[in-house]
Amino acid sequence: MVVAQQQKAGTFQVLVGKIDDVLQYAIGDPLRYLANWGRLYSLWPVHLETACCSVEVGAAAGSRFDIERFGTLEAFGSLRACDLIIVMGTVTRKLAPRLKLIYDQMAEPKWVIAMGACSITGGLYFDSYNVLRGIDDIIPVDVYVPGCPPRAEALIQGIVLLQEKIRRMPTLSGR
């Protein structure tokens, strides 16, 4: 009898002790799904043009490719409202600290798309004295879109990939 009571209390304590796990199982998953679903189709990129790839971003936002169909709004000025940086090409030594600053100012969760050969490895400018060989040294990158410049379709594919990643994101907070 006593043993049984003790056992019961033990179970209860275990239950209380793992309450966040339980909640995680009970409502966390649907909540995460809901939150991620909400983020998925309202990506808002920062307006940061770094080099010539920005022309293709312009074309992708234009009426022919119309990137908004896939739930990405046009580039926007306020960093606080943005959750996506599309690094449009070469990052030079002068821009690199600014890029980091911009990334740090953005609110979590945030994602980065490295667009173009330049932002992935330095591309054509591998032997230039003023170009960073890839941006992943300074900020974490979620999706790489190769090309020089990538076609607008490639950028759209990159965004769809990123959305897939967001959909499967394991935590609520982002990273």
Binding site: G122, F126, D127, S128, Y129, N130, R133
Partner: peptide, 15 residues
């Protein structure tokens, strides 16, 4: 703070 880059004795770091 390096040499001026277009001088011939400046060698680009990638080379």
């Amino acid at each position: 703070n390096d040499l001026p880059p277009l001088r011939k004795d400046y060698v680009s770091p990638g080379r």
